[in-house]
Amino acid sequence: MNSYNKPSGNGRSDEESGGRISGDEKYGETFVPDPLPLETLFHRYGIERSHADNVARNVLELFEILAPAHGLGPEFQQLVEIAALVHDVGVATDLENHHKAGRDILLLHPPSELPERLWPVVAWTAFLHKKNIGEKKLRKLNEKGFGNMPEDLQALTLKVAALVRLADALDYSRMESRLGKVTSGKKSFRFEIEGEGAAIDAERMDKKGDLWHLLYDTELEFRPQSHKS
């Protein structure tokens, strides 16, 4: 489904480990980004290809299904796909804080396939994909470099991150869970999750839906597929 499914190596670089730029610096003022192609990012930072591809597949399905709620046009499909492909770029550099490492890597080396204006969206999506998000965390974002981005890019980043969080959660078990039957109401979507890890991943999606529910008044529900005899 995504356009970047090519074999990847497991090489990595410690280029940023000693003095990498910080996402807390002011937007656009402290460094000049050096964009790299997706394949270079995959090789250099040892991104887990199977997980990245699954999350990209998931996010494109969610993007299409939830389009009436999130309101993003088809011109943003490539953005959400690429954001999903590189969301874990910081894992090999700093597993515990890979959301921060990923942000800093992508601020320095944004995917060259995207227009320059959208580079920070991918970096901050990587930062926002990992931990729980509530009103307090959203307010604190304004104290970081995130708050120095144009307001329209801040809003776009949060929407992309909400989708990537759900797509990532759907592959939490690494057991090839998939979206099954979808039932939609006026302000709700109910997803049945298929696969051996469905119970694990449905529960994870419920948790990682926190940002979505802060942004939208459309309720999402995730349940493992029931098998009736």
Rank of each mutant, 00 (worst) to 15 (best):
Y4G: 04
Y4C: 09
K6G: 04
P7H: 11
P7V: 02
G9K: 09
R12C: 13
E15T: 13
G18M: 09
G19Y: 07
R20V: 10
K26N: 08
G28Y: 03
G28H: 08
T30G: 10
R44Y: 10
E48V: 10
S50T: 15
H51L: 04
D53R: 10
A56Y: 01
A56D: 02
V59M: 10
L62F: 13
E64M: 00
E64S: 14
A69K: 03
A69M: 00
G73A: 15
L79M: 06
H87V: 05
A92N: 03
D94Y: 13
G102Y: 06
R103T: 02
I105C: 00
L107W: 13
L108Y: 09
P111F: 12
S112Q: 10
L114F: 02
W119C: 05
P120R: 01
T125K: 01
A126W: 04
L128K: 11
K136Y: 06
K136A: 15
N142I: 07
N142R: 03
F146K: 05
N148T: 03
P150D: 06
D152Q: 10
Q154T: 07
K159L: 15
A162F: 01
A162L: 05
A162E: 04
V164S: 13
A167C: 07
S173I: 05
E176K: 12
V182D: 00
T183I: 14
S184R: 08
K186F: 15
E196D: 14
A199Q: 13
I200L: 13
A202G: 15
E203F: 12
W212G: 08
L220F: 00
S226Y: 00
